[in-house]
């Protein structure tokens, strides 16, 4: 009993400590932003590796998720003779939840883990120390460009995921199952609101997720124990923690935007 409480206390302190360090890390990251603004090309390079390289998995997943939504939605709505609502079912589920959330989870797995591993490896191979000794601040040169590029990439990826998903749903519903094309789009248009669903749903959510995902990924790399085992642990933590935090934050945001 006492032992359990002590263990609880220890792990609480451990997590508080990590949270504190992560916060300090974030503050230094933000203070390096003005330096980055002078050299945006650094962020462009990173935008390539987190954005462009994540594009295939995001687009493919979006397509399949949209197609599944089309099939499932049709199977459920056909009993009520309401298949004309399929467009809005697909669009609302994607824009409000699936687009930003799944894009963030895929991002954590594809780009977040790579960020952690890359930074962890740079630390292990003394590249970061070498950079410091060359009087180059890794916060401005390494961490901040990755963080910023990730935050820019996330909403774009979520938007692409959502749009491709809707096209996938359209393909299944209209081309395969014979839902009326006009009904599909008009039902969608009459229910999906630009501000409530597209801006709040896709844009705001994914910017917040991008912030969280990249903060975790870059911090885990920065904080990794510089051994191969340490990097593998840090990479795993990035994916696990990002997924949990994204889902938790999603609940809060959903309650905020769409809750009663």
């Amino acid at each position: 009993m006492i032992d359990g409480l002590r263990r609880l206390g220890r792990s609480t302190l451990f997590w508080l400590n990590r949270l504190g360090r992560a916060t300090l890390f974030l503050l230094r990251l933000l203070s390096a932003l003005p330096t980055l603004a002078k050299r945006p090309s650094l962020a462009i390079r990173q935008l390539y590796s987190v954005g462009v390289l994540s594009l295939p998995i995001i687009a493919m997943s979006g397509l399949f998720v949209g197609m599944v939504l089309g099939l499932q939605g049709y199977a459920n709505l056909v009993d009520f003779g309401a298949t004309s609502s399929l467009g809005r079912v697909v669009a609302l589920s994607l824009a409000r939840e699936l687009g930003p959330v799944l894009a963030a989870l895929l991002y954590a797995a594809r780009a977040g883990s790579a960020l952690t591993a890359e930074i962890g490896l740079m630390k292990t191979t003394e590249q970061l120390s070498a950079m410091q000794m060359m009087a180059v601040d890794p916060f401005a040169r390494v961490y901040a460009p990755r963080f910023v590029a990730g935050i820019i990439a996330m909403p774009l990826l979520a938007g692409i995921f959502t749009a491709v998903g809707i096209l996938g749903g359209y393909f299944v519903a209209v081309q395969q199952l014979g839902v009326d094309s006009g009904a599909f789009w008009s039902q969608m248009q009459s229910t999906v609101k630009l501000f409530d669903d597209v801006i709040n749903g896709v844009v705001i959510k994914s910017v917040v997720f991008g912030w969280v995902a990249n903060w975790i990924a870059v911090f885990e790399g920065y904080d990794a124990i510089p051994t191969s085992e340490g990097i593998s642990l840090a990479t795993t933590r990035t994916v696990v923690n990002t997924s949990l935090v994204v889902l938790a934050v999603d609940f809060v945001l959903t309650a905020l935007f769409f809750g009663v």
Binding site: A163, I166, M188, Q189, D197, V198
Partner: peptide, 10 residues
């Protein structure tokens, strides 16, 4: 994608 979401979807 956002253009499509804005013009075609909403």
């Amino acid at each position: 994608a956002f253009f499509m979401l804005a013009m075609k979807v909403s």
